[in-house]
Each structure stands twice: as structure tokens, then as C-alpha cells.
Nucleic acid binder design. Structure first.
Lengths: 238, 238
DNA sequence: GCAGATACGCTACGACTCGTAGCGAAAGAG
DNA sequence: CTCTTTCGCTACGAGTCGTAGCGTATCTGC
């Protein structure tokens, strides 16, 4: 019998509410189990199909019906969980970023180089390229989507910068925090610089990222431009 | 969808073929005037309507029919000139970047700060935000569109970096080129860093760009991280 | 076990956009 | 004045979106 309960849209949101607010990709939350629980298999199939379809036909060609067919699932099942294509793709792509890690390799430069290489590899995958830019584009106009992107994709990356900074301080490569605000701003600026530069290089300029390029980039971050006269460095606040 | 199809219909391409292949914004090319020339007024109205519609309803909501109505033009007229929404938006957005200039303010840092401020102002405009990211996203899968974006938007910006570098060399702030390749690579990396960082800050992190932020960013570019011990700087090639 | 509740696959639907085709009228070029 | 091209308009088939309704499958609580 058709449950005439309201819930016009966003059944996902309502159903997920009782679960931990910081929960991740695991969209199926049969916590308040009453009726038939949502199939976790279907969830995985949908997310996998979304990533595969993204890699093959890109964002523009990605249709909900296509994803449903590919996942062996009814289209209505998609809409029961994700209110729109955007939200679905956020979940599908976010998990790709979980593999990013920052290791303590003994020097700040080595650590940065390693994480940049990981990031470059991730952005080299076709499903990541198409999806990430499309998400950013949609997010520029949809505040809710932007928030979700922040929580699921951007903030975890920023955390890597925090960790790397802390490691460098522990090794004595960086001085201690002068104050809290300055530290936050410094992390922000370093994060935007690393992520933005790598993304721009790969996604906009469209040129590959080689170990040599990574070496030059990190050197730029950590030391002045080669050939820069000392005169300018002495007057950072003209 | 449109980008998926190879190129079943390219009326624009065929019609524009006799014109110079490297021609730019001036889409109307009544060069081989025989019959009624294309209305330059209509062209301007269409591009203006496209920018306005982008600012209001964004990329996703932008439809060809909507632009046509807004411009007071038949939808068919749009398709007579631009083969797809992507190409139209490239032309509509490219002109926005023409206002970017690099001045010789007497110091490299001041010059960079000025151009970053201009770029940030440009990216603060809603039509630029939505359009630029959407174009990048489409371009990540459509090589022809990507090439067009490069020619019309990216390369002109890169030229600014070249100019700023030359100015700094003329002032003696930067040493002369060691060799051609190194100079090119250095320009590439600086360009990706400036453009990518500003774009990431504004479009992804979604935080504003203040003069203070610009000062910190350019200082980061031109000098080592504050607090960085000299030990690391001495070993750029561990 | 047996209800009740929920999710499932399937089909169909209206609304919308896409890009094209055909028409008669308008506006310059020669 | 004629010829050529563009113009606005209308209509069309194809495709997608997101929703609704149906009957069935599956799990929980009594």
C-alpha cells in the first residue's frame, strides 16, 4: 500500500537525520529499522556506476536514468536517496579523496612533494577531472551544495596541510605559532596555493605534472624565486 | 549531451570557414558580403544577454531559448552563429578578461598585487564565477572547447605574467634568463600558481580576497615562509 | 507466525530543453 | 531591380527531468 506520508523530496535527508551527523558515504542508515531497510548493495552499485559513467561520458552526458540502468536499479531508487544529480556526484567523488594522506618523510619539502604527487595522480583520473570541476561549477551557485563540497572534499584536504605543518614544527623546520589567527591564515593560504596550483595546472592549463615540476613548485613555495635580488626581500612591506 | 555528439551539426564552423581560422570575438564576419549581412547589433545583444542570464540564473539554468528571448532574437539565430552553448559562453566570457592589465608600478611585488587585485575583482562577479568553472568543466572533456578556452582566456592571462617578468628584469629585480626553456617553465609555474590560487580561494574555498590577503600571498611568492629555518633553504635538492 | 511498515522495480506522465527544418518577409550587394 | 542571405516565427522528434502510482519483496515488532 502506498504510504501517503508527505516527504515530497529529500527522503535521504530526513532518513539520515537520526544517524551520526558526521557520517560519510554510507548513505544507508537503517538505524530506525521499521520496514525493509535500504539495500547497501544498491548504494554501492549506484556510486560505482556513477563514477564509471563519469569517467566514460563525463558530467554533461551523465543522466540519472543512465546511472540507474548501469547500476541495475530503478531510477526512482536514485531519487529516493539523492535529491539531485549534484548530491549524488558529491558522494560518488568524495570517496576518491579519502586516499590522500600525508606522511612524515623527514622534511617539509619531501612531505609536500609526496602529497602533491598523490593529488596529481588523483586529478589525472578522468572521472575526477570531469566531476570535480562540474561540482565546483554547480557549487558556485548552490550554497547548500557548496557547503557539502566543503565538508566532504575541501576540508579533509585542508586537514592535510595542518598535519604537514604540525609535523614540520615538530621537526623544528618551522617556528612555533605566533598566534592562532596567523596560523589559520597561513594554513588557508598554503592550502589554496597548493590545491589551486595543482588543479589549475592539470585541469585548466591541461599540462601534466611531473616529479620535476613538483620539485620546482615546492621549491618556489619554500624559497624565493631564483634570481630574485635581496633588495626586494628586505622590503616585504613597502 | 551536446558535447557527446561528435559534430553532427556545425553550421557556425561551416559558415565561418572562409573567414580567418584564428579570428576572435567578432563572430559576424560579413567578409564575403553577398546577401544580407549579419546584424552586429544582434551579436552584441546576444552576448550581453548571455552574460546577464549567466549572472542571474547561472550555467545550469541557462538555456538557448532563454538567451534568445532575452536578446530579442530568434533561437535559430543563435544556432546560426554558435554551434553550442559552450562556444557561446566562451565568447561571452572571454571579453570580460580583456580588462586585465599589468602596469609597471616600480616593483615586482606591487605589480603582482595589482594584477591579482584585478583578477580577484573579475572573479567576484557572479557571471564570471558560474561561467568560468562551467567552461573549465566542459573543457575537461571537449578538446576543441579546451583549445578555444586556452586561446581566448588562458593564454592572454599568461601573457601578463610574461610582461610582469620582463618589467622586473628591466628594473633589475630579477636576473636575466638563463635559457629559453627555463624561462618558459618559470612563467608557466608562476602563472599556474597565481591564477590557480586566486581561483581556488574565490571559487572553491569561497572566501573573499582582501588587500591583506594579496599582500600575504605575494610575499609568499617572493620570499620564503616566515619561520622557515635556513637549513631547508640550503638544501633545495636533498 | 502475522501484521505493519518500508523499499523495491516497473511503467507512465507532464514539463522542459535541445537542435533542426521549413516558411515568408526583410535588408543589403551588385 | 534582382539576387542572395539573414531574419523571426512556428513546429517537430528526441531526450531528460523528477514525480506518481502500482504491485511485490523484505525486514521489524508483537
Amino acid at each position: 500500500m502506498a504510504p501517503t506520508t508527505p516527504q515530497p523530496t529529500t527522503p535521504q535527508q530526513a532518513a539520515t537525520a537520526p544517524a551520526s551527523p558526521t557520517d560519510e558515504a554510507a548513505v544507508d542508515v537503517p538505524s530506525r529499522g521499521k520496514g525493509r531497510p535500504r539495500s547497501a548493495t544498491a548504494d554501492r552499485a549506484i556510486l560505482d556506476a556513477t563514477r564509471a559513467a563519469l569517467a566514460e561520458i563525463g558530467w554533461g552526458g551523465l543522466t540519472m536514468g543512465h546511472v540507474a540502468t548501469r547500476a541495475g536499479v530503478a531510477k526512482t531508487t536514485l531519487y529516493r536517496r539523492w535529491p539531485s544529480k549534484n548530491e549524488l556526484v558529491v558522494d560518488a567523488v568524495a570517496s576518491l579523496f579519502d586516499e590522500l594522506e600525508i606522511a612524515d618523510l623527514g622534511s617539509l619539502q619531501a612531505d609536500i612533494e609526496a602529497v602533491v604527487a598523490q593529488f596529481a595522480d588523483l586529478l589525472a583520473r578522468p572521472e575526477t577531472q570531469a566531476a570535480l570541476l562540474a561540482l565546483f561549477a554547480e557549487g558556485s551557485r548552490d550554497p547548500q551544495l557548496r557547503r557539502r563540497i566543503r565538508e566532504r572534499i575541501v576540508d579533509p584536504q585542508k586537514h592535510l596541510v595542518q598535519l604537514g605543518r604540525a609535523n614540520a614544527q615538530a621537526r623544528g623546520e618551522l617556528g612555533p605559532d605566533r598566534d592562532e589567527d596567523t596560523a589559520c591564515e597561513e594554513i588557508d593560504i598554503i592550502f589554496d596555493t597548493i590545491a589551486g596550483t595543482v588543479e589549475h595546472r592539470m585541469l585548466v592549463s591541461g599540462e601534466p605534472i611531473s616529479p620535476a615540476w613538483i620539485r620546482r613548485f615546492t621549491t618556489l613555495l619554500l624559497s624565493p624565486l631564483p634570481g630574485l635580488t635581496a633588495a626586494l626581500a628586505e622590503t616585504p612591506h613597502p
